[in-house]
Design a protein around this nucleic acid. Structure first.
Lengths: 234, 234
DNA sequence: CCTATACATTTTGTATACAAACGAGAAATT
DNA sequence: AATTTCTCGTTTGTATACAAAATGTATAGG
């Protein structure tokens, strides 16, 4: 029972950080969190240590835990490194996947496409996170997997807007991303490493285009006419 | 005072694991370790959690901490992934290094060459570890750095014999490795990224030859991105 | 002789009380 | 008025006692 509470605490904190329910830079107070989750401070501190190990929070001496921030420098490195890690992982996942893992991945994908269709942005982001983490496990490469997990923490937080469609174009993009997932599953299942990396790169391109808009949004139109044109163009 | 004891405990356990003074697969008993280091079990458990986060030990539910083992599968992946991570890190270290970090790196190198000449294999291994970790920090890439740190845990453990010369050829190899370090420092200081990666690859080759008793598969291609689409480069 | 089960021992997990460090604000000194 | 120092409340860090789980051992039954 108490074990479940601790596991729930850790999973819930992870989810809340990934969805930015607890935003980057937030202070985490041990006493109040322990009370919230109905456990004492000792196991809560162990949870925080584990979250720190996974790049979710930063522990400072005598100063408690803060949710890892995402400054501009981090973002730059993120864009720089993502294709390398994602593609290397995809290649090795295709080489080393087991059929059991493929089945689990397909199950995640089914759930993801369901919640995405239902418009549940929060669950979509979390299941998308799980999807890519499962591919990471398939690669059986603890070195790259360590980097991937940290990368996914930032990626999921950054792309919180991705699964929350505002326009028709957004919905198309979500649909496309989920189709890409299906293609990636097939390639990995068929152990076609080259295809898997290629599809992963395309998937990254889609995500990156969306993220760049979020990070560097379209400039405000200089005049009313061009804005009208833009609206009518769709 | 107590803070120092805890820090010492963590550093000492790290060193003992890296030097295989505590061999892979060992069980770590909380009570006896706590007594050995003169701290109570609570802070000791936090140390173990941190070591687990760094890939030094594995924590199993209700079953304590074991030093991470190095099975055959791990070894294979190690040889596969090392050049990719080391070279990516070296390139970015050259791009992002500060002069302060260069000075610190040089200091480590001075110490390393001193203890290596003195035949202190244990300290040589640990300082070599520190040297490469410092280069990792220079890259300012938390994603690759996470993988590098895990890689170095295994690399340092594997190469425990490296700095313990048995023959003249061994001594020549050590000398060569340390000369390579000097060249790497120069390249990184001069921000010559291409040269730094090239030297790093040579350095890896030397180390790999030494570890060659283990099966080594083909490395992951270094240019997974540039092969495809250079739009992805930033 | 082997297996299974109950019990005892050991080890890990949690709660709580206490100690130490930090930070904010008041008081004192220049 | 500005700066320093002191004090107190808050928060984090540690020790210890206790609970729960796992492991080892002995004994009963087959």
């Amino acid at each position: 029972m108490a074990k479940q509470k601790k596991a729930h605490c850790e999973a819930d904190l992870r989810a809340r950080i990934l969805t930015q329910d607890i935003p980057p830079g937030s202070d985490l107070d041990e006493a109040s969190l322990a009370e919230d989750y109905g456990i004492s401070r000792t196991p809560l501190r162990e949870v925080l240590h584990r979250l720190a190990g996974g790049g979710y929070v930063r522990l400072e001496e005598n100063r408690g835990a803060k949710v890892e921030s995402m400054d501009f420098a981090t973002l730059r490195v993120f864009f720089q490194t993502a294709p390398l890690i994602y593609c290397s992982i995809a290649r090795q996942a295709a080489e080393n996947r087991s059929s059991r893992e493929i089945a689990a991945l397909k199950e995640t994908q089914v759930q993801l496409s369901r919640v995405a269709r239902a418009g549940d942005a929060r669950q979509s982001g979390l299941l998308n996170h799980k999807f890519h983490e499962q591919i990471g496990e398939m690669a059986r490469n603890p070195y790259l997997f360590a980097g991937l997990k940290r990368m996914l923490v930032d990626h999921t937080r950054l792309s919180q807007t991705f699964f929350d469609p505002k326009t028709n174009a957004d919905e198309t993009r979500i649909k496309k991303a989920i189709e890409q997932h299906d293609a990636m599953i097939s390639a990995i299942e068929a152990q076609e490493a080259a295809l898997a990396t290629d599809l992963t790169l395309q998937h990254w391109d889609l995500s990156r285009d969306q993220l760049e808009k979020y990070v560097r949004p379209d400039p405000i139109p200089l005049d009313v006419i061009s804005m009208k044109d833009h609206r009518n163009a769709i």
